[in-house]
Design a protein around this nucleic acid. Structure first.
Lengths: 278, 278
DNA sequence: CGAATATTTGAAGTGGCTCAAGTCCAGTGG
DNA sequence: CCACTGGACTTGAGCCACTTCAAATATTCG
């Protein structure tokens, strides 16, 4: 039956299906740009012209499967990666091949805005889950930043928030135990998912395997598994097929010593600064 | 005798001493700004007018003793900290008071350029050693960035390099053992000192105690001590009174799996990008 | 259904931690 | 000039969080 439907479609609607797909890709790009703009507006005040400059960016939409490497260390890049859907990871690799993930980017993030000012990264970027991305030319982003100083500041600000998150991860890797690290990460990603409008903090689709989680938390797969099971009992954590659900979110936040200040979600915090730009 | 000299100075030269001091402070500021400019020029091409804008920045010079906290988490800041001499640390603090240092800044670094776009940091900043700093108003830096887009990019680029270093620390905390972490850190700081012109990579003044080193490496003081002693045998490391000397630097780099690519010292790497800005 | 990937479990090993002294050294006051 | 003090460094012994290795059991997907 399913086969029949497919044939029907292929036979009767092929030309219009191509159109539908082109239209769909364009829609996806717009969806991504809208998410990205919303992300910027969380922390930056932008005029109509400046918002338009973001929404008018063009890029190539692509679906990428888990594990696909998008950027390799020391290789120049000319496009920024806008995450439309899914999960993109920044990673560093040791000589023996072991990996450490140093950032995770969700829908609406541009995962290497860094490479606009520094086009040869020291890190790699891979799809951590099956994802939809758009590749946006650095030149276009740069042109927008030069034309609108407020956009340059918004981009700069975005990379600073990224660094703030990275600093928190560093602190946790250095000073927190496995349960705290896992709990903190789940709280953070949950919060970011909720803010991005793609899930609730206590119920979201992460798409990571436990092995990838291990690479993120600086642990082994085995120990991640044991820690997940411990949190299962402690806070009603369920982690199946990349879907994360938490019964007792406050308890999770307590175990993770989680305080979302470092995510810079408080728009007023930067208020005094906007005045002098616009 | 020493007392006598002091009295003589105080009695006879007091008025001119004040002048001398003012002049000296101004000299120190200029020295710091020159170092900072040199740092920017490592990675960014700047016109004469843009260089001038940096050198004309004004700020208050201050001597700060080890341990002095300069910025506290969640507290708005209005000045950036330019390191003229010494060592400034960015840190995060756990609930139980244990610290993790997430960045070290040496002469010529501005240790919180981040707070220009994001004036409420999630981290703290302290003097890790007795240091000389200059406090430069965010407004002045921002004005320069708005007037000269190339400066905005240079600042942005500087925070991205900072993030690249942070990502490397994260990777090492997550995946490297104590000896590797220590060796890598010493290689990195040595390289940066050498580039900044304040020491050789195998002989420089760090100014950190082993306890602070522990907070940087995510270890305990005891274990840092044992690791230092191990490297003493392996590579002829001497670590006394904050002075670091290494007999066999290549061996240290090998133990630390050190590759300085992430420091973005290769000016040509960003070449393609300059064209489109200037 | 079969192959590959992901999760779970057990048992033994170890790198780094904790706790507890003790030494070295620079600075301070008498 | 010395005794005192506090900070930094060093050392030892026992312990534990996490790793390693090895294998069994889901789960996903073509």
């Amino acid at each position: 039956m399913r086969l029949f439907v497919f044939h029907l479609r292929a036979a009767l609607f092929w030309p219009s299906y191509v159109e539908w797909k082109a239209c769909c890709l364009s829609r996806l790009l717009d969806e991504g740009l809208n998410r990205f703009l919303a992300r910027l507006l969380l922390r930056s005040e932008l005029s109509v012209a400046e918002r338009d400059a973001i929404l008018r960016l063009r890029g190539r939409v692509a679906e990428v499967p888990r594990g696909r490497e998008l950027v390799l260390p020391e290789r120049p890049v000319e496009q920024a990666i806008l995450v439309i859907e899914g999960l993109i990871a920044r990673f560093d690799q040791m000589n023996d091949g072991r990996r450490q993930i140093t950032a995770l980017h969700i829908a609406g993030d541009v995962s290497d805005l860094h490479s606009v000012p520094v086009p040869v990264p020291a890190w790699g970027i891979e799809a951590a889950a099956n994802s939809t991305i758009a590749l946006i030319s650095h030149d276009d982003i740069r042109a927008a930043a030069v034309k609108f100083p407020a956009l340059a500041f918004a981009f700069w600000r975005d990379t600073v928030v990224d660094a703030s998150i990275l600093a928190k991860w560093t602190a946790n890797l250095g000073r927190a135990d496995a349960a705290t690290r896992l709990a903190h990460l789940l709280c953070e990603i949950g919060t970011r998912m909720e803010v991005a409008g793609v899930g609730g903090r206590d119920d979201f689709s992460l798409g990571l395997t436990q092995a990838q989680l291990a690479d993120t938390l600086g642990l082994t797969t085995v120990h991640v598994n044991r820690t997940v099971m411990a949190l299962r009992n402690l806070v009603g954590l369920s982690f199946a097929g990349g879907r994360v659900q938490v019964d007792n979110w406050p308890a999770l936040a307590h175990i993770g010593a989680y305080d979302d200040g470092y995510l810079m979600l408080d728009k007023d915090a930067a208020a005094q600064e906007w005045a002098s730009i616009s």
